[in-house]
Amino acid sequence: MKLFIKFDFNTICKKVLETKLEELDIKYRILAFGEVELLEKVPSEKYEALNDALNSYGIEIVENQKSILVQKIKDAIIDMVFNEDSTVNVKSSVYLSEKLGHSYGYLSNLFSEVTYTSIENFIIIQKIEYTKQLLLTTDLSLTEIAFKLNYSSVAHLSTQFKNATGITPSAFQRIISKRRSIAQQKN
């Protein structure tokens, strides 16, 4: 007996996508055929789980493998900066190539190609962002922050902060506190 099935790839595909995304508890929005917007940041493990699940249906995320790696680099860097233990005594280049299993040269080139910036610069940006966060949310002095973030001196942190943002850490602190007091007055 033969069954003649008429099916709509779009619907199937859509259904599978929906099921798998929901299984993994990912917020999403289907824009058009072949295009899904993820509404939140997805950790790389989840991302890969989704990729695997879809692959078994013959659905492939038309993606740049490069960007996954870049995302991994970024995650590693963020982990390195914000988790102080991992920074101790390890050069970032060594740390990254060991963790991701690629040569630092390859990672570096790839990163610059995709993100318009270098790994070094990205590390600095992350460190500065962390410094900003510490300045605003803790009572730590800049000297203490410099020590915490493994800078050789407070002057080095100041310099890096100023080079990255064009303003000094204290000016940054002052501006944000002024903004906050203005916002408080408005409320």
Binding site: I125, E129, K132, Q133, T165, G166, I167, F172, I175, I176
Partner: peptide, 13 residues
């Protein structure tokens, strides 16, 4: 792209 805190985005060039 890195979901940094935009409130802290200050830059002088």
């Amino acid at each position: 792209t890195n979901s940094l805190n935009k409130d802290n985005f200050l830059m002088r060039l």
